[in-house]
């Protein structure tokens, strides 16, 4: 059993697209599957509201291509 979500948070399966709602320094609030989460945007420091980010284990790995705005 995995706590919280159906899948294990260590696994690539939960690298999910999250839409940026707001940015505060190196943290962003993203909406992942209808829920708000805080993620570190150290790897995508130019992320801005509206971007779609691939999120895993509390950080954004990268921006999904061609989906800005």
């Amino acid at each position: 059993m995995t706590v919280g979500r159906e899948t294990c948070s260590t696994c690539g399966d939960v690298a999910l697209p999250g839409r940026v709602r707001e940015v505060d320094g190196l943290e962003a609030v993203v909406e992942v599957e209808g829920q708000s989460e805080r993620v570190g945007i150290d790897l995508v420091p130019d992320a801005r509201p509206g971007d779609l980010l691939l999120c895993h284990a509390g950080i954004a790995l990268e921006r999904l291509e061609g989906d800005r705005g």
Partner: peptide, 30 residues
């Protein structure tokens, strides 16, 4: 997230917080 563990350490300076890190290259960046 390991960042949550770091936040725990920041909030509880009297304790030592150790993050047990596992995962492939997907998780290592975090």
């Amino acid at each position: 997230s390991p960042l949550d563990a770091l936040e725990l350490a920041r909030r509880e300076p009297d304790r030592h917080v150790c993050f047990f890190a596992i995962g492939f290259e997907t998780t290592a960046p975090a």
